[in-house]
Nucleic acid binder design. Structure first.
Length: 471
RNA sequence: GACGCGUUGGCAGAUUGGUUAUGCAUCGGAUUGCAAAUCCGAACAACUCGGUUCGAUUCCGGGAUGCGUCUCCA
């Protein structure tokens, strides 16, 4: 029985899908004003793991993740880079897809761009105005009237009275009726801003309305799971609930799942703090499976502190599992295929861990105990059990998204390259030694010293004894 | 100020009202031509103060402290 921590009820709820064997899930995606950072990677990896597990449990999953390609920061960045706004966001989307594919994420069933959903957004805003939940402010921008929605604060447990106002254009009471009201449609302020036509003038949607319109369009007013980073809980998700509930009174998300944040230098990782680590850069040092292991070795809801030493250590731990799986791949024995239906004790532990709100650290510890058993069976020369447990290890790892075809082939490629490099290095060293010996024989001391220095660069220390050593 | 989540060995990180998490690192041993890998064993733990209890790291309360959110953020 799968239990999931639901932010709405603040406890672990038993999972039950609305439609039998089907799950609709929406995850708030990236605002593409820069490259993907490691924080994005964590959130999407968490939901990737959740979706893989649901699929493993025989659910047909409809996974929707939006791309915010309209946003003040995107506009600002594109102007700064003197790049057309559309070109800039498209370039960032390409980069995002490239980076995310390297950590082997399941592709969403739909990945709508906000710019393709403007008509849905306009419809939703019109209806909200019609119902009296939204109004045109003094500035001409459209605002949501928070006080009209009596359940506001339900998911984030916030009350309007306790909110602190921040200074920005849209927090100014000269443009809207109440400070808690948030913007649904922004009119263009500068000539070079991108815009779309609307009943309220040329402009663009506010941030919160896009997710409401997209979930409505792709998943309807009732769906199973809504996810995102915990930093989106307030105001983003609170506002989404308000918008959708006012748009359709039967709106209901069964489970709200929030991923814990990646912490770096004792604070949340975000670009506004200029401490971001781009996924692209991390991928130069660690592969997809290693990054996956690093994230899954902490519970998905707890904050996770990042520093390089930590991921290096986790890479070392992961080696243990990887080498066992590689050994299995290289020694598969088809005569044991009748073993596939046999179950082992560890599978139960693994499933219990996953069913308990996706306890991946515990599930991983089960993998380690399988590895130990495999090693013992190897030592005891028990090939049947080596095969059985190795097979199970691989199957369970795959549930968590490890050892996909792509990640395996990338890893093999990396290893082969390394081997080639090693071989070349050894050849080079032998050649240099030969040349140096020749130079010494010819008493060409300058060349000999030069070659000695070159050898030192390869880590080879030359200690000459006498000419007798020379060949 | 409000709301939420934390504090577990050297590090990372699960779990639990009583009995080994797990991984890395350390120490001892086994295995091995050497090494790597592996196995066995050892040592090291619950922020603090109260309460409940036969028994609390776990439940309850106070305190300390860290992180997140409060209308741009995965």
């Amino acid at each position: 029985m799968l239990k999931i921590f639901n932010t709405l009820t603040r406890k672990k709820d038993i999972f039950q899908s609305i439609k039998k064997n089907k799950v609709g899930i929406y995850v708030c995606g990236v605002t593409v004003y820069d490259l993907c950072h490691l924080g994005h990677a964590r959130t999407f990896l968490v939901f990737d793991m959740i979706i893989r597990y649901l699929k493993y449990c025989n659910y047909e999953v409809n996974y929707v993740r939006n791309i915010t390609d309209i946003d003040d920061k995107i506009i600002f960045k594109s102007i700064q880079k003197k790049e057309n706004f559309i070109d800039f966001s498209n370039r960032m989307i390409l980069e995002m897809n490239k980076d995310l594919s390297m950590i082997n994420l399941i592709q969403p069933n739909a990945e709508p761009k906000v710019s393709n959903c403007i008509s849905n957004i306009i419809n939703m805003i019109s209806k909200l105005i019609g119902k009296g939940y939204a109004y045109i402010g003094k500035s001409g921008d459209v605002f949501f009237s928070v006080k009209k929605y009596t359940n506001y604060g339900q998911i984030s447990n916030q009350t309007i009275q306790n909110l602190q106002s921040k200074n920005s254009f849209y927090s100014d009471l000269s443009v809207k009726n109440n400070f808690e009201d948030f913007v649904l449609w922004k009119l263009i302020k500068e000539k070079n801003e991108p815009y779309w036509f609307s009943p309220w003038g040329k402009g663009r949607p506010g941030w919160h309305i896009e997710c409401s319109a997209i979930t409505e369009k792709y998943l309807g007013y009732k769906f199973d799971i809504h996810g995102g980073g915990i930093d989106l809980l307030f105001p983003h998700h609170e506002n989404e609930v308000a918008q959708n509930s006012c748009y359709n009174k039967d709106f209901c998300v069964s489970y709200w799942i929030h991923a814990g944040l990646l912490i770096i230098n004792n604070s949340k990782m975000s670009k506004s703090l200029e401490n971001s680590l781009f996924l692209k850069n991390i991928l130069k040092k660690f592969d997809g499976d290693e990054i996956r292991f690093f994230f899954l070795s902490a519970h998905y809801r707890s904050p996770l502190e990042y520093f390089e030493e930590k991921i290096k250590k986790s890479k070392e731990s992961f080696k243990k599992i990887r080498s066992a799986v590689l050994f299995f791949n290289s020694s598969s024995c088809s005569s044991y295929t009748n073993f596939f239906s046999i179950s082992i004790e560890e599978e139960k532990h693994f499933h219990n861990a996953m069913e308990n709100d996706f306890n991946t650290p515990k599930a991983l510890s089960v993998l380690f105990s399988i590895v130990r058993k495999i090693n013992i069976f190897k030592k005891n020369k028990d090939p049947k059990n080596v095969f059985l447990y190795s097979f199970k290890l691989k199957e369970l790892s795959k549930i968590l998204g490890f050892f996909t075809k792509k990640s395996m082939s990338l890893y093999k490629e990396k290893i082969n390259k390394k081997k080639l490099k090693e071989n070349k290095k050894i050849k080079d060293i032998h050649l240099l030694i030969k040349l140096r010996n020749k130079a010494r024989k010819n008493k060409n001391w300058d060349l000999s010293d030069l070659l000695k220095k070159k050898l030192l660069k390869f880590g080879v220390v030359i200690e000459d004894k006498s000419y007798k050593d020379l060949e």
